[in-house]
Protein backbone atom coordinates (compact mmCIF):
# COMPACT_ATOMS: atom_id res chain seq x y z
CA UNK A 1 0.00 0.00 0.00
CA UNK A 2 2.86 2.35 0.83
CA UNK A 3 4.16 1.93 -2.66
CA UNK A 4 0.77 2.74 -4.17
CA UNK A 5 0.54 5.90 -2.07
CA UNK A 6 3.99 6.98 -3.24
CA UNK A 7 3.01 6.35 -6.84
CA UNK A 8 -0.20 8.34 -6.56
CA UNK A 9 1.65 11.22 -4.92
CA UNK A 10 4.27 11.19 -7.63
CA UNK A 11 1.71 11.17 -10.41
CA UNK A 12 -0.10 14.06 -8.75
CA UNK A 13 3.13 16.00 -8.39
CA UNK A 14 3.97 15.36 -12.03
CA UNK A 15 0.72 16.98 -13.08
CA UNK A 16 1.45 20.16 -11.17
CA UNK A 17 2.48 23.17 -13.17
CA UNK A 18 5.38 25.28 -12.01
CA UNK A 19 3.86 28.59 -11.03
CA UNK A 20 4.71 32.07 -12.24
CA UNK A 21 8.33 32.96 -11.91
CA UNK A 22 9.49 36.38 -10.90
CA UNK A 23 13.03 36.19 -12.14
CA UNK A 24 14.19 38.85 -14.56
CA UNK A 25 14.75 37.92 -18.18
CA UNK A 26 18.53 38.05 -17.94
CA UNK A 27 18.59 35.24 -15.39
CA UNK A 28 21.61 33.76 -17.14
CA UNK A 29 23.66 36.80 -16.16
CA UNK A 30 23.00 36.33 -12.45
CA UNK A 31 24.82 33.00 -12.34
CA UNK A 32 28.30 33.47 -10.87
CA UNK A 33 27.87 37.25 -10.66
CA UNK A 34 28.78 36.86 -6.98
CA UNK A 35 30.83 34.17 -5.31
CA UNK A 36 31.86 33.45 -1.76
CA UNK A 37 34.38 31.15 -0.13
CA UNK A 38 33.79 29.91 3.40
CA UNK A 39 35.49 27.90 6.12
CA UNK A 40 33.24 25.72 8.24
CA UNK A 41 33.66 23.47 11.24
CA UNK A 42 31.39 21.75 13.72
CA UNK A 43 30.09 18.51 15.11
CA UNK A 44 28.32 15.54 13.53
CA UNK A 45 25.65 13.60 15.43
CA UNK A 46 24.61 10.20 14.11
CA UNK A 47 20.87 9.47 14.33
CA UNK A 48 18.72 6.36 14.50
CA UNK A 49 20.56 3.05 14.66
CA UNK A 50 23.68 4.78 13.42
CA UNK A 51 24.09 5.91 17.06
CA UNK A 52 25.21 2.34 17.78
CA UNK A 53 27.69 2.45 14.92
CA UNK A 54 29.74 5.61 15.38
CA UNK A 55 30.53 8.25 17.99
CA UNK A 56 29.77 11.91 17.58
CA UNK A 57 32.63 13.50 15.76
CA UNK A 58 33.96 16.74 14.34
CA UNK A 59 33.96 17.94 10.76
CA UNK A 60 35.56 20.77 8.86
CA UNK A 61 35.98 22.00 5.35
CA UNK A 62 35.38 24.54 2.63
CA UNK A 63 32.21 25.95 1.14
CA UNK A 64 31.84 27.69 -2.18
CA UNK A 65 28.66 29.67 -2.72
CA UNK A 66 27.66 31.45 -5.92
CA UNK A 67 24.67 33.44 -7.10
CA UNK A 68 22.36 31.37 -9.30
CA UNK A 69 19.03 33.20 -9.41
CA UNK A 70 17.97 36.39 -7.65
CA UNK A 71 16.94 34.61 -4.47
CA UNK A 72 18.75 31.36 -4.95
CA UNK A 73 22.42 30.52 -4.50
CA UNK A 74 24.28 27.44 -5.60
CA UNK A 75 26.45 25.75 -2.98
CA UNK A 76 29.39 23.38 -3.27
CA UNK A 77 30.80 21.95 -0.03
CA UNK A 78 33.84 19.81 0.71
CA UNK A 79 33.97 18.47 4.25
CA UNK A 80 36.30 16.08 5.97
CA UNK A 81 35.25 13.90 8.90
CA UNK A 82 36.96 11.15 10.87
CA UNK A 83 34.41 8.67 12.17
CA UNK A 84 35.29 6.41 15.10
CA UNK A 85 33.35 3.15 15.22
CA UNK A 86 31.65 2.28 18.52
CA UNK A 87 31.77 -1.53 18.44
CA UNK A 88 35.15 -2.73 19.71
CA UNK A 89 35.18 -5.57 17.21
CA UNK A 90 35.90 -3.19 14.34
CA UNK A 91 39.59 -3.82 13.60
CA UNK A 92 40.70 -0.19 13.18
CA UNK A 93 40.48 3.20 14.89
CA UNK A 94 38.46 5.16 12.42
CA UNK A 95 37.26 5.92 8.93
CA UNK A 96 38.21 8.89 6.75
CA UNK A 97 35.24 10.47 5.07
CA UNK A 98 35.48 13.08 2.36
CA UNK A 99 32.09 14.47 1.49
CA UNK A 100 31.22 16.58 -1.52
CA UNK A 101 27.86 18.29 -1.61
CA UNK A 102 26.12 20.18 -4.36
CA UNK A 103 22.86 22.01 -3.81
CA UNK A 104 20.83 25.17 -3.76
CA UNK A 105 20.09 27.69 -1.00
CA UNK A 106 16.86 29.62 -1.05
CA UNK A 107 16.75 33.04 0.58
CA UNK A 108 13.09 33.07 1.55
CA UNK A 109 12.43 36.69 2.55
CA UNK A 110 9.71 35.66 5.03
CA UNK A 111 12.09 33.83 7.33
CA UNK A 112 15.17 35.97 6.72
CA UNK A 113 17.92 35.81 7.99
CA UNK A 114 17.40 32.06 7.79
CA UNK A 115 18.21 30.46 4.46
CA UNK A 116 16.93 26.98 3.56
CA UNK A 117 18.76 24.68 1.23
CA UNK A 118 19.09 21.15 -0.03
CA UNK A 119 20.95 19.02 -2.48
CA UNK A 120 22.86 15.84 -3.12
CA UNK A 121 25.92 14.55 -1.37
CA UNK A 122 28.62 12.10 -2.33
CA UNK A 123 30.56 10.53 0.52
CA UNK A 124 33.85 8.76 -0.04
CA UNK A 125 35.10 6.60 2.79
CA UNK A 126 38.12 4.48 3.61
CA UNK A 127 39.19 2.80 6.84
CA UNK A 128 42.26 4.16 8.61
CA UNK A 129 44.20 0.90 8.53
CA UNK A 130 47.57 0.31 10.14
CA UNK A 131 50.32 -0.58 7.70
CA UNK A 132 50.49 -4.19 8.90
CA UNK A 133 46.77 -4.92 8.41
CA UNK A 134 45.92 -7.03 5.37
CA UNK A 135 42.60 -5.96 3.87
CA UNK A 136 41.49 -9.44 2.84
CA UNK A 137 42.04 -10.76 6.36
CA UNK A 138 39.70 -8.26 7.96
CA UNK A 139 37.12 -8.27 5.17
CA UNK A 140 34.67 -10.51 6.98
CA UNK A 141 34.93 -8.60 10.28
CA UNK A 142 32.54 -5.73 11.07
CA UNK A 143 33.65 -2.71 9.07
CA UNK A 144 35.77 -4.90 6.81
CA UNK A 145 34.25 -3.62 3.60
CA UNK A 146 35.76 -0.18 4.25
CA UNK A 147 39.28 -1.55 3.78
CA UNK A 148 38.78 -0.53 0.17
CA UNK A 149 37.35 2.77 -1.00
CA UNK A 150 33.59 2.86 -0.70
CA UNK A 151 31.38 5.66 -1.97
CA UNK A 152 27.73 6.30 -1.32
CA UNK A 153 25.44 9.09 -2.40
CA UNK A 154 22.68 10.78 -0.47
CA UNK A 155 20.79 13.99 0.04
CA UNK A 156 20.78 16.80 2.55
CA UNK A 157 18.61 19.68 3.69
CA UNK A 158 19.94 22.56 5.71
CA UNK A 159 19.08 25.69 7.62
CA UNK A 160 21.65 28.40 7.30
CA UNK A 161 21.38 31.16 9.89
CA UNK A 162 23.24 34.32 9.00
CA UNK A 163 24.45 35.76 12.29
CA UNK A 164 26.66 38.62 11.28
CA UNK A 165 27.52 40.49 8.08
CA UNK A 166 30.45 42.88 7.90
CA UNK A 167 31.78 44.29 4.61
CA UNK A 168 32.95 41.27 2.63
CA UNK A 169 32.64 38.87 5.55
CA UNK A 170 29.80 36.83 6.90
CA UNK A 171 29.53 34.57 9.94
CA UNK A 172 26.74 32.09 10.41
CA UNK A 173 25.46 28.75 11.67
CA UNK A 174 24.80 25.77 9.49
CA UNK A 175 22.40 23.09 10.63
CA UNK A 176 22.30 20.23 8.18
CA UNK A 177 20.45 16.92 8.03
CA UNK A 178 22.03 14.32 5.81
CA UNK A 179 20.84 10.90 4.70
CA UNK A 180 23.14 8.60 2.80
CA UNK A 181 21.61 5.79 0.81
CA UNK A 182 23.22 2.87 2.61
CA UNK A 183 21.86 -0.61 3.25
CA UNK A 184 20.53 -2.55 5.15
CA UNK A 185 19.25 0.83 6.43
CA UNK A 186 19.75 4.42 5.37
CA UNK A 187 22.27 6.41 7.48
CA UNK A 188 21.13 9.70 9.00
CA UNK A 189 23.27 12.39 10.59
CA UNK A 190 22.88 15.92 11.85
CA UNK A 191 25.66 18.43 11.23
CA UNK A 192 25.87 21.57 13.36
CA UNK A 193 28.61 24.02 12.52
CA UNK A 194 29.87 27.54 12.39
CA UNK A 195 31.22 29.19 9.27
CA UNK A 196 33.13 32.30 8.23
CA UNK A 197 32.70 33.37 4.65
CA UNK A 198 34.45 35.94 2.47
CA UNK A 199 33.10 37.45 -0.69
CA UNK A 200 35.37 36.70 -3.65
CA UNK A 201 33.63 38.94 -6.20
Amino acid sequence: MGKLKNILMLVASLALVAFAQSEPKNVEDIAFSHAYLGLEGGEVYPFGDLIDATDNTLYGGLNFRYSYWENVDGVVMFHYTYFQPRPDVVPYDGVHQASGKLGLDWKWPLISPIVVGGGFSCNWTRADLDDDVIKDEIYNMPGGTLGDNETEFGWYVRLNLIAWNFKDYRVGFNLMWEEIWTLPKRSNMLYAGLYVERKLW
Partner: peptide
Protein backbone atom coordinates in the same frame (compact mmCIF):
# COMPACT_ATOMS: atom_id res chain seq x y z
CA UNK B 1 30.14 9.14 -11.58
CA UNK B 2 27.38 7.26 -9.85
CA UNK B 3 26.52 4.21 -7.85
CA UNK B 4 23.84 1.63 -7.31
CA UNK B 5 22.41 2.72 -3.97
CA UNK B 6 22.96 0.56 -0.95
CA UNK B 7 26.57 0.17 0.09
CA UNK B 8 27.07 -0.51 3.79
CA UNK B 9 29.49 2.27 4.81
CA UNK B 10 28.96 2.76 8.60
CA UNK B 11 26.17 0.19 8.69
CA UNK B 12 28.96 -2.35 8.29
CA UNK B 13 29.97 -1.76 11.97
CA UNK B 14 26.60 -3.09 13.14
CA UNK B 15 25.68 -5.56 10.40
CA UNK B 16 26.46 -9.26 10.69
CA UNK B 17 28.47 -10.71 7.84
CA UNK B 18 25.56 -12.84 6.66
CA UNK B 19 23.23 -9.83 6.53
CA UNK B 20 25.52 -7.81 4.32
CA UNK B 21 23.82 -6.72 1.11
Amino acid sequence: TGNELGDLIYQDFITAKDDRP
